[in-house]
């Protein structure tokens, strides 16, 4: 049986089809999920994709967090289901309090769109086990509100517990505290990051294929569990 990984489409999601494609290339079975539908269609994991859900009104991710599908995603994430939030999906995870902190406007106010070097800081999550700790990868980054902030105590906790999953290399692109590009929850099943691994899965369209490891990690973990 193949691994079913759902990708939620909110009004304003942009990268849902790329995420489904990445899941397919990684050997998984991509399943389209709809924001108004509480049913997760028996998926084994969920990806919250990039984009501008609900037009980024109020705050990025603030309205998506209260959509019907998120009620089930939050419940299942707390029960251990792997959930990956990419860019706007990371913002939704922070608004949902599945991950600590928040994403704020880039400190330089400009939208950033570039290939971004990252260091993998944790290979102990459901979405990063196919990487080595310390490995450097390059994937696209594109955001206007990607500055990761949290209070000092939370940042110290994340560092001490090895929950910083990715750090920016070669310059901080958005003012994120401590160069943090992505984090994980305590259990390691929920991961959020601003850069876009789903855009780096094929030589034809991506700068690298470094992003594929997110999806192969989840597929392998679910096959063996």
């Amino acid at each position: 049986m193949t691994t079913r990984i759902g990708v939620v489409t909110f009004p304003g999601s942009l990268d849902d089809s790329d995420a489904r494609r990445a899941i397919g290339l990684a050997g998984g079975d991509p399943v389209a999920l709809w924001h108004r539908d509480k049913d997760l269609r028996q998926v084994d994991a969920v990806v919250l994709p990039g984009g501008f859900s609900y037009g980024d009104y109020l705050r990025c991710g603030a309205i998506a967090r209260f959509s019907p599908v998120m009620a089930t995603v939050i419940e299942q994430a707390k029960a251990g289901m792997p959930v990956l939030g990419i860019c706007n999906g990371f913002q939704v995870l922070c608004e949902s309090h599945l991950l600590p902190g928040a994403l704020t406007r880039n400190d330089h106010l400009h939208f950033v769109c570039r290939d971004q070097r990252l260091r993998v800081e944790s290979a102990d999550t459901a979405w990063t086990s196919d990487y080595e700790r310390g490995q450097e990868i390059t994937v696209p980054l594109k955001n206007g509100e990607g500055g990761y902030v949290a209070d000092e105590r939370t940042l110290d906790e994340l560092e001490a517990e090895g929950r910083v999953a990715f750090r920016y290399l070669g310059g901080n692109p958005n003012g994120s505290r401590r160069d943090i590009a992505g984090i994980t929850n305590e259990a390691g099943n929920v991961v959020g990051l601003m850069p876009h691994p789903e855009h780096a899965v094929e030589a034809l369209t991506g700068p690298t294929t470094d992003g594929l490891g997110f999806f192969t990690s989840a597929v392998k973990k679910l096959v063996t569990s």
Binding site: T104, R105, N106, D107, H108, L109, G147, V149, D151, G175
Partner: peptide, 9 residues
């Protein structure tokens, strides 16, 4: 925004 949060706008 809380006083300690940067407000670039």
């Amino acid at each position: 925004l809380k006083p300690e949060i940067l407000d670039p706008q």
